[in-house]
C-alpha cells in the first residue's frame, strides 16, 4: 500500500538532491554565456530559441 509513495518519494529525493548538487557546483562558463537556466527549464522553445531569435531580428 505504501510502496508507490515510497518509490516516488525515493525518486523525488534523488532528483532534488542531484538538482541542488548540480546548482551548487560552479559552471566552467561565465554567467552571460548561459541562457537563463530558469527560463530555459521552464520552457524550452520560447525562452531559449524563438525569443532569442526574435530579439536578434529586431
Amino acid at each position: 500500500m505504501m510502496l508507490p509513495f515510497l518509490v516516488v518519494g525515493l525518486i523525488v529525493g534523488i532528483y532534488i538532491a542531484s538538482y541542488v548538487l548540480n546548482r551548487r557546483m560552479e559552471a566552467p562558463l561565465e554567467k552571460h554565456e548561459m541562457a537563463s537556466e530558469e527560463t530555459c527549464a521552464s520552457c524550452t522553445n520560447y525562452s531559449c530559441g524563438i525569443k532569442q531569435n526574435m530579439a536578434e531580428e529586431r
Binding site: 524550452t44 522553445n45 520560447y46 530559441g49 524563438i50
Partner: peptide, 8 residues
Amino acid sequence: CPFLGVSK
C-alpha cells in the same frame, strides 16, 4: 519545440 527553437 527544440526542432523549431534551436534550429536557427
